[in-house]
Nucleic acid binder design. Structure first.
Lengths: 216, 216
DNA sequence: GTCTATATGGCGATAGAC
DNA sequence: GTCTATCGCCATATAGAC
């Protein structure tokens, strides 16, 4: 029956997501995926021909989900602080709901960067657009040490770090208290959104050491 | 002969470092380690009894190397901007020399956070000391949204992000040009060091929205 | 579509000669 | 200490009944 088939496929995808995301491609076991999906190994291979193909499907699924929101945000006409704030908020929510995603994604960045940038293209994410947008909205940046690339690295770094380093950071600074850390992360969303506004307003005035930007 | 034994062990460690760091524990193959060391698999097991034990040795080796510098910096009497600047500089140099380390370390943070915090203890890294130091040197922080934990997350995030995201970030914003990206990273060291000074001086004056810090 | 049973290959680990 | 040869397991993948 077709409805059953769809149900099974969904169960497989959900189970595979969990296992791959927590253990990685190499660490994951088809047996465990089958168990969590409530089926047997053979059926996995019936739906997806191989472990690799199953992994591809999962990865594509997750990244599309993420990039869809990113692409949508870029195309709005928000002010830059609003735009950056929207990113901060989205990533914080998204990764609080899916704590394993950041490490999973960074792992893939190192194992297979090509595929990832392919997915970005297919999702219409054009980094050049983002850089341009920043340069238009903050013209002072062109005479500044703070290039658009630095700014992007700052925002992404400050936003993502507490998620990617969570198990250690939570243990070391928050007594491994999950609730406390969740509150820290929520509080941090507001903190960073305010910082975006403040830092960008300051950027126009606080620059004196201009360098010719020979490299970029 | 003993000198030979030492030589072999060194070669194994160097080879194992490369393979484990690039592929992770699960992805690494004892065969590949043996090949790169110029020996055979059996000899690997003669020196280190199992793959796990070999991995442990490598991991301990790398983390000790890193934490030794961190611990040393913490114990100096530098001003806070100097201290943070020293961290930025060290991490940037260290990870430019060893580009795979960040992903390797973050992977382990998720696979085995306990062992990592054990190693920190054995290296005399006490996070509480760092927090205290910040609170002493920047008294205004106690009445601010910018808690010490946020500040640490900011500095580490901005510093580490370009390293952990390198393959994608370099591809997407720097045409995958290695030299250009290296220059970006070096330039960024200076950029962040200046930022440390500026941001910390600003922290005392730019605060108006005080909240009682009920949680921390 | 879903299952049980089995094939196939690869990898960590050991035996034993030198 | 170092090698060759091999064991034994485990994980992916397939065959074939229902």
């Amino acid at each position: 029956m077709n409805a059953l088939k769809v149900e099974t496929e969904k169960k497989i995808i959900e189970a595979a997501k969990e296992v791959f995301v927590e253990k990685g491609l190499q660490g994951a076991r088809m047996q465990e995926i089958a168990d969590r999906a409530g089926i047997n190994k053979a059926l996995l291979h019936y739906y997806f021909r191989s472990k690799d193909k199953l992994f591809d499907a999962i990865f594509e699924n997750i990244m599309s989900q993420m990039f869809a929101v990113v692409a949508e945000n870029i195309r709005t006409d928000m002010s830059l602080p609003e735009l950056l704030g929207a990113f901060v908020e989205f990533y914080n929510d998204f990764f609080q709901m899916n704590p394993f995603y950041p490490q999973f994604i960074f792992h893939e960045i190192w194992q297979n960067p090509d595929r990832l940038s392919e997915i970005m293209k297919s999702q219409q994410i054009a980094p050049a657009e983002i850089v341009e947008k920043i340069q238009q909205k903050v013209p002072a940046i062109n005479n500044s040490d703070l290039t658009a690339e630095h700014m992007i690295a700052n925002v992404l770094g400050m936003t993502l770090f507490p998620h990617i380093a969570r198990p250690l950071f939570q243990r070391v600074f928050f007594n491994n208290d999950n609730d406390k850390y969740s509150r820290f992360l929520s509080e941090r969303t507001d903190f960073l959104k305010e910082l975006m506004t403040g830092a960008l307003m300051g950027a126009t005035s606080s620059e004196m050491n201009n360098k010719p930007d020979e490299d970029f």
